[in-house]
């Protein structure tokens, strides 16, 4: 992917993720110095920019578990030429999706009302502040909500896998992950 005369613009975000994939991204260590020669960051936890502008590459960690995730994901899709699902949660729903066979209302009751250690708390209630995004009844991998160009599985993907994938992509090759750096765990 060649853009003459300027650095590639990259945005990243974590939806229903744990930021582990971002930590793994930082695990490319000294390659970060090579990377900043090639790219500059738009919206990302690394820059604290709050909204995504026009970008070449968008990297999404985490699945979609609430209404805000849907808005952020659509913003990324709208502004990024290439969208990458980074990590097990973005690719499969991951750990948050393990609630999918349960009723979300019962989950909230269990967590805030009835589970051991919480049942005796006075005035305990399910949080309902209007600032809080509403939960979806199911957690979805991002490709079930928007079109996704590439997937990097792993929990988290290793720094090596992320670096291999990004350098392939930036060099204009078809990015390829295979044994042993392709892992789902």
């Amino acid at each position: 992917m060649i853009v003459s005369g300027r650095k590639l613009r990259v945005a990243t975000t974590s939806l229903a993720g744990c930021f582990g994939c971002h930590m793994s991204f930082l695990d490319i260590d000294e390659h970060l110095l090579e990377l900043v020669e090639l790219v500059e960051f738009d919206r990302s936890p690394l820059t604290d920019i709050k909204h995504c502008g026009p970008c070449d590459i968008g990297i999404i960690e985490g699945g979609v578990c609430n209404a805000e995730n849907v808005h952020v994901l659509r913003e990324f899709r709208k502004h990024c030429k290439i969208l990458i699902a980074l990590g097990a949660c973005a690719v499969t729903g991951g750990l948050p999706a393990q609630r999918n066979h349960l009723d979300v209302g019962q989950c909230l009751q269990e967590v805030y009302h009835t589970c051991i250690g919480v049942e005796s708390l006075p005035g305990g209630q399910v949080p309902n502040d209007p600032e809080l995004p509403l939960l979806l009844d199911k957690v979805h991998p991002i490709h079930e909500v928007v079109r996704v160009d590439y997937f990097i599985p792993g929990c988290p993907p290793s720094g090596e896998a992320i670096w291999k994938f990004l350098t392939d992509l930036i060099a204009g090759h078809t990015p390829r992950l295979s044994h042993p750096i392709l892992r789902f765990d």
Partner: peptide, 13 residues
């Protein structure tokens, strides 16, 4: 899935 380089499940879960 590793051997066949399956990177995503493609379909809806």
């Amino acid at each position: 899935a590793y051997d066949l380089e399956m990177l995503s499940a493609h379909f809806n879960h």
